[in-house]
Amino acid sequence: MASKAAPTSNTMAIISCLVYSFMSNAMVLANRYIVGQKYYNFREKSFVILAQATIGVLILEIAKARGVIHYEKFSMETAKRWAPVTGFFVAMLYTGTLATAGLPIHIVTVFKNVTNLIIVFGEYRLFGEKVGPLVLGSLVVMLMGAVLTSYSDVGGKPTHSTLAGYFWMFMNCVSTAAYVLYMRYATTGSSLKLSKFGMAFYNNLVAIPLLFLPMAYTGDAITVWSNPLMINVPFLFLLFLSGVMGIGLNLASFWCVSVTSATTYATVGGLNKLPTTFIGVLLLHEELKPQTAIYVTFGMVGGMMYGYGKFKDAEAAKQAKAHAAQNVDQKV
């Protein structure tokens, strides 16, 4: 019986990685169609996030009511304590949506890797974590890939939309890193403990009132109701589908991490950028100049190096821990 357990476990790990990759790319494709200038070009970006968050809460509550999943009951005190995490979460979603609207998918995927530089620096400063030479090398490769890609894309004639897209892409990198680092503190450095489904529930629920601020500031709360796309059935179906995909991506992420490891999840995230780029070029017919393609590949290789480097660092840490425990046993 033991010989059959390993193949089954490996099969589930492979399936979870494939499902996570599929959901991630499907979400990118849906958002690109919703806010992309060449497609629906829906201008009320904050309303898109509000709709996706609301749909996410409904799906989680329905799944909980049917006994499919379980998470903590709603608590106003927990919601208040979780609000800073959700604030960074909303900023991550909002800036990511604006960046996706102003930049091609292949540019967005390369710059997503830049977030790792900020996270690694933050983990070193806040949690004292050190990284190996392979991870440091990958960070240099990713940064060079991002700089070269942006330089070749702008090509000396930057448009207002392009410059705005790069600004929001940079803000997305900062807010994503802040979200990851603060979530780690909230879940490990404080007394606040939530299950993964609970995190997804509070992220989406607390995001709903927080989104009213950008909606009021941009005027989306008023203009959205006069947008002709609000009575466009195919668009509304895609908007609903994107909300389903959003919670599906969360669940796929949790599943991938639970049956594999965080390092495997990071590696899959790096490899995941390959199909994302092909989506933009092949399915959405976005232009990719040969020179830019080389730099995009350069940046994605850095992302894969990062995932592999994190895996090697984790393996080295496990071996060091096991060796230390063995020495203790021998002394005893």
Rank of each mutant, 00 (worst) to 15 (best):
S3A: 12
S16T: 10
V19T: 09
A26E: 05
N31C: 01
R32A: 04
V35C: 00
G36V: 01
I49W: 00
L50R: 01
A51D: 01
A51F: 06
A53R: 01
L58G: 10
L60Q: 02
V68M: 12
V68Y: 12
V68L: 14
E77M: 11
G87M: 07
L93E: 02
T95P: 02
A99W: 01
T100G: 03
G102F: 04
T109I: 12
K112Q: 14
N113P: 00
V114L: 15
T115A: 06
T115I: 05
N116Q: 08
E123H: 03
S138A: 15
M142A: 08
S150K: 07
Y151A: 14
D153M: 04
G165A: 09
Y166G: 05
N172A: 06
V174I: 15
S175N: 07
A177Y: 02
Y185A: 06
S190W: 15
K193N: 10
K193D: 05
L194M: 13
Y202S: 04
A207E: 01
L211Y: 05
L213R: 05
A216E: 09
G219Y: 10
I222N: 08
N227L: 07
I231L: 13
F240H: 12
I247R: 01
G248S: 13
L251W: 04
S253G: 12
F254S: 06
W255V: 09
V257Q: 09
T260R: 06
T260S: 15
A262P: 02
T267A: 10
V268E: 01
N272G: 14
K273P: 03
L274W: 11
P290C: 13
P290F: 12
T292K: 07
V296H: 02
V301W: 04
G302F: 06
Y308C: 05
F311S: 09
A314Q: 12
Q319R: 14
H323V: 11
N327V: 09
V328F: 12
D329V: 14
Q330V: 14
